[in-house]
Design a protein around this nucleic acid. Structure first.
Lengths: 223, 223
DNA sequence: TTAAAAATACGCCCAATGTCGTATTGTATT
DNA sequence: AATACAATACGACATTGGGCGTATTTTTAA
C-alpha cells in the first residue's frame, strides 16, 4: 500500500516537477497539493488524511514552521512532516524540530532519495540531508544542559483563606476558562462564578484574572 | 574504492558474526578489530587509518564514549564513529554525540543497513536507527536551555513572523498591562496598541490575551 | 525609485470582565 | 436556637477586550 502524501510549496514550478517525479514511484501516492500553510489547513479536512507532508519552509500567508506547529496541535502528531529547505535556511532546523518536523531535506535531493525519506519517517526514522544532519549534530553538541535550581518558597491557598470552591474556581480561571465556561463545567450560574471570583479577588487583593493567575502560578497552586 | 573500517566490541561473538556479515559487501573493507577502547587506541597507529569505526558503547577498560572523545582529540575528527548500542542504552545518545559520534545504530540492524550507514557517514550524514532518531528528536525538543536573554528574544518569535514592535507589545501584554497602560508606556495611542495586538493574534492564531501569554510562556519569549 | 511592509490611528459593535449591591438557602459550630 | 460562613443567584453599570474595516505616514527592500 503506497504512502499517502501531500506537497506544500508556494512555487508552482517546484510543485509540478516534484509531483511529476514522484508519480514514477509506486511507493507513494499524492493526495493533494497546497500553496502555503493556510491553504494546507483548509485542504486537510477536505481530503483523505495524508500520512506524510513534504513542506516548504518559506511560504506566504503561513510558513512551514507555523503550519507544522498547527498540524501537530490539531492532528496530534498523526501526520509526519518532512521539511524542504534550501541551503541557506539551515538555521531554521531547530525551530522546525521544535514545531514537530520529523525530517529535513534539501530541495535538490534526487526523487529516489525523497521517496526513501518518506518511507523512513513512516518507520519512525528521521531522514535528513547530510549537511542538515551535520548542523543538527553541532546544535546538539553545543547544548549545555543545565539543571534547574532556585526553588522559590510558596504559600498554600489556605493562607489566603480560600474555600475549596474558590480554589476550584481559581484553577478554572488559570486554565483559561471564561465565566460562562466555568459555569457550564460546574453546573452553576455564571453569576455565581462571577461572585466567587469577586470573593477570590478580595482575598488575594488582586483586581483581574491576570493578577490572580500570576499569583496562583507563583505559588504553584496550578500547572 | 571500499571504505576502510574497524570494529570495536568486547564481545568476540559479535565481532566474528559482524565481520563475517560485512565480508559479503565489497563497499567496505575491514582493517582490524579491537576488544575495547584502550585496545583500539593501541591498534590504530599500527594499521592503515580506518575511515569509519563501528564501536560498542559498553566495554571494559575504556568504553565507547571515552574512546570517541580520545579519538576525536587525537585524529581531529578525521575518523567517523558509528556507535553500536542495544535498546536500553539509548540514554547514552547525548553523551555519545557530545563525545563526537556521527551515527548511532542498534546492534541488531541488518548488515545491509549497516553498510548503508557507513556510506552515509562518509558522505557527511548522520545515520541513526529509527528508535534512536526518535529519542534524539525528543532530546532536541526538550532542550529548553537556550542562550540567555538577548538572543532568546530574537530567535523563536520570528518563526511566527512577529515584528520587533509586535514582540514588544506581546511582552507588555504578558506583563499584565492593559492597552491603555501599554499605550502610555510606548507613547502611542491605545488604538494602535490594539491594532498591533490584533496582528499578533492573527500571526499566533490565538484569540485572547490569555492564549497569547500562554504561547509566549511556552516558548520562553517572556519571564 | 518604486513597491512592500511596518507602525501609526480611528470608528463601530458586541462580548467579557470588574465592581458595586442585595438576597436566599444550606450547613456547621457553638 | 442563634450565629457565622459558604454557596448559590440576580441586577446595574462602567471598563476592557476582541473582531472588523479603513487610512495615513514612515521605513525597508527590491
Amino acid at each position: 500500500m503506497p504512502v499517502k502524501i501531500a506537497l506544500i510549496d508556494d512555487n508552482p514550478k517546484l510543485l509540478r516537477s516534484l509531483s511529476q517525479n514522484l508519480a514514477f514511484f509506486s511507493e507513494v501516492k499524492l493526495i493533494f497539493m497546497a500553496n502555503n500553510g493556510l491553504d494546507l489547513l483548509t485542504k486537510l479536512p477536505q481530503n483523505p488524511l495524508p500520512e506524510v507532508l513534504l513542506m516548504d519552509i518559506e511560504m506566504p500567508e503561513m510558513n512551514g514552521i507555523q503550519a507544522s506547529f498547527e498540524i501537530n496541535q490539531r492532528y496530534n502528531g498523526q501526520i509526519k512532516i518532512i521539511m524542504l529547505t534550501v541551503l541557506d535556511q539551515e538555521d531554521k532546523i531547530f525551530a522546525a524540530i521544535q514545531a514537530g518536523a520529523s525530517g529535513y531535506l534539501l530541495k535538490d535531493e534526487k526523487p529516489a532519495k525523497i521517496v526513501n525519506a518518506i518511507e523512513e519517517v513512516i518507520q519512525g526514522g528521521v531522514p535528513m540531508s547530510a549537511s542538515v544532519a551535520q548542523k543538527t549534530l553541532t546544535l546538539l553538541r553545543n547544548q549545555t544542559s543545565q539543571p534547574q535550581s532556585a526553588s522559590e518558597l510558596s504559600l498554600s491557598p489556605e493562607v489566603f483563606d480560600l474555600t475549596a470552591r474558590e480554589i476550584e474556581i481559581l484553577q478554572a480561571i488559570a486554565a483559561g476558562l471564561s465565566y460562562k465556561q466555568i459555569a457550564e463545567k460546574l453546573f452553576i450560574s455564571d453569576k455565581t462564578v462571577k461572585k466567587h471570583t469577586e470573593n477570590v479577588y478580595a482575598k488575594l487583593h488582586v483586581h483581574s484574572k491576570y493578577e490572580a493567575i500570576k499569583l496562583a502560578e507563583r505559588n504553584k497552586w496550578v500547572k
